[in-house]
Write a protein that binds this DNA or RNA. Structure first.
Lengths: 110, 110
DNA sequence: TTAATTTATTGCAATATTACGATAAATATT
DNA sequence: AATATTTATCGTAATATTGCAATAAATTAA
């Protein structure tokens, strides 16, 4: 066990959980917030900005990139990361729909 | 290791990641969607609705309850769960603020 | 070419998560 | 009281995640 049974859920449910999972670590939240904050795209500054070792940051960046929420651009020896705007918008639509489910219909049972 | 360094992040970043983490499993997404869908609050029906064993569902419900997103009401031998409306709204505000960060400011680097 | 700089990858240890069988706890029914 | 029903908890196995030292890979500078 220890293995999520993705096959018994809908594609939508799996997609929501995948996006949520990547936001489920404060380092990745911090990375994204920093990429939003600064106009120009920062690269290895993230290692200084956030207090984690370089391989750890690199790993978190990889996960964000893998989900398509950021893109990386090689510039000399360094790599410049930024938010993938189009994909972020798509993700936002999916997550917002989940968060905005109608509360008025559901009765309170307790 | 294997331990998230929460102390180096802001309370806001940790809070966002905690909410996201609980949505980071399709079973919990499915449970929440089902609680939204049906007017009356369902209980152990969730075990049938979702294809996971009863202890597994119970464990997921515990996590959702621990974060305050649902509440449970004992009714005879069964327990009736429902969305905790006030807390859901608070969570929604926090998550929406994170998702709605200003895209127009951030330059594209790639 | 050699050294310096920056990022990615590998390998590994520590911890967390997922899932479920077994069983306990609580209440309802007979 | 004894039994049935429902949910929670415990224990445990399998897998995933987190973090970092060591090192590789890629590019630039001297």
């Amino acid at each position: 066990m220890g293995l999520t049974k993705t096959e018994i859920f809908t594609d939508q449910q799996n997609e929501i959980s995948l996006f949520a999972k990547v936001f489920g670590h404060p380092a990745r939240v911090a990375i994204l917030q920093h990429l939003f904050k600064i106009n120009s795209c920062v690269c290895g500054d993230l290692v200084n900005e956030i207090g984690l070792a370089q391989p750890t940051i690199s790993q978190h960046l990889k996960e964000l990139k893998h989900l398509g929420l950021i893109k990386g651009n090689v510039e000399g020896t360094s790599v410049c990361y930024c938010i993938h705007k189009e994909n972020w918008t798509v993700m936002k639509t999916i997550m917002t729909e989940f968060l905005n489910q109608d509360l008025s219909k559901s009765q309170d049972c307790c």
